[in-house]
Amino acid sequence: MYAHGGRRTKAEQDAATVEIGYALVSAAFAAAVLFGAVAGPTFLFDLPHPVSTVLLGLGTTVAPVVFMARVISVLVRFQQSARPGRPGRTDPDS
């Protein structure tokens, strides 16, 4: 991942920037879809107050968890793919 004595190349910096952007955008989309699926019926239907309160609370609790899980999973996967393989060994995924 680091070339030239520990410094990142411009291509490595650009790849990391793109991956961070992808992680944030895809996580925001996933969280929004999940919030809409869980809390959406509250806005569409006339539900009893306790049910709507539970759905809104569940949506606002689960959406940030999904957001963070998505960001972490994308960035960890990127970091693992950027690690150089062991010299002299072939990678079964290649």
Rank of each mutant, 00 (worst) to 15 (best):
residue 2 Y to P: 03
residue 2 Y to K: 14
residue 3 A to Y: 13
residue 3 A to N: 14
residue 3 A to S: 13
residue 3 A to M: 12
residue 4 H to E: 13
residue 4 H to K: 12
residue 5 G to T: 05
residue 6 G to M: 06
residue 7 R to N: 11
residue 7 R to I: 11
residue 7 R to D: 11
residue 8 R to K: 10
residue 8 R to Q: 09
residue 8 R to P: 01
residue 10 K to E: 13
residue 10 K to V: 15
residue 11 A to P: 04
residue 11 A to Y: 01
residue 12 E to Y: 09
residue 12 E to A: 15
residue 12 E to S: 14
residue 13 Q to E: 15
residue 14 D to I: 07
residue 15 A to W: 03
residue 16 A to H: 09
residue 17 T to A: 15
residue 17 T to P: 01
residue 18 V to Q: 10
residue 18 V to M: 03
residue 18 V to L: 06
residue 19 E to S: 08
residue 20 I to V: 12
residue 22 Y to D: 06
residue 22 Y to A: 10
residue 23 A to F: 11
residue 23 A to H: 06
residue 23 A to C: 05
residue 24 L to S: 01
residue 25 V to A: 13
residue 26 S to W: 09
residue 27 A to G: 03
residue 27 A to R: 00
residue 28 A to T: 10
residue 29 F to R: 12
residue 30 A to S: 12
residue 30 A to R: 06
residue 31 A to L: 00
residue 31 A to N: 02
residue 32 A to F: 04
residue 32 A to E: 02
residue 33 V to A: 15
residue 33 V to L: 14
residue 33 V to G: 08
residue 34 L to V: 15
residue 35 F to T: 00
residue 38 V to H: 02
residue 38 V to C: 04
residue 39 A to T: 02
residue 40 G to C: 04
residue 40 G to A: 07
residue 40 G to Q: 04
residue 41 P to G: 10
residue 41 P to A: 11
residue 41 P to F: 10
residue 41 P to Q: 10
residue 42 T to E: 04
residue 42 T to V: 15
residue 43 F to Y: 15
residue 43 F to M: 08
residue 44 L to C: 11
residue 45 F to K: 10
residue 45 F to I: 06
residue 46 D to F: 02
residue 46 D to Q: 11
residue 46 D to I: 07
residue 47 L to I: 08
residue 47 L to P: 02
residue 47 L to Q: 03
residue 47 L to A: 03
residue 48 P to Q: 05
residue 49 H to N: 13
residue 50 P to T: 07
residue 51 V to M: 08
residue 52 S to L: 02
residue 52 S to I: 02
residue 52 S to G: 11
residue 53 T to L: 11
residue 53 T to G: 05
residue 53 T to C: 03
residue 57 G to N: 08
residue 57 G to R: 06
residue 57 G to M: 02
residue 58 L to S: 10
residue 59 G to C: 03
residue 60 T to R: 04
residue 60 T to K: 04
residue 62 V to S: 15
residue 62 V to D: 08
residue 63 A to E: 00
residue 63 A to D: 01
residue 64 P to L: 00
residue 65 V to A: 09
residue 65 V to T: 05
residue 66 V to W: 01
residue 68 M to H: 08
residue 68 M to P: 00
residue 69 A to M: 11
residue 69 A to T: 15
residue 71 V to P: 00
residue 72 I to C: 04
residue 74 V to S: 10
residue 75 L to Q: 09
residue 76 V to M: 07
residue 78 F to G: 01
residue 78 F to I: 02
residue 79 Q to S: 14
residue 79 Q to F: 08
residue 80 Q to C: 06
residue 80 Q to P: 00
residue 80 Q to V: 07
residue 80 Q to Y: 12
residue 81 S to W: 03
residue 81 S to A: 15
residue 81 S to M: 12
residue 83 R to K: 14
residue 83 R to T: 10
residue 83 R to D: 05
residue 83 R to A: 14
residue 84 P to R: 13
residue 84 P to E: 07
residue 85 G to T: 01
residue 86 R to A: 14
residue 86 R to T: 14
residue 86 R to Y: 01
residue 86 R to K: 11
residue 87 P to S: 05
residue 89 R to I: 09
residue 89 R to S: 13
residue 90 T to W: 09
residue 91 D to S: 11
residue 91 D to Y: 02
residue 92 P to W: 09
residue 93 D to K: 12
residue 93 D to F: 12
residue 94 S to R: 11
residue 94 S to M: 14
residue 94 S to T: 12
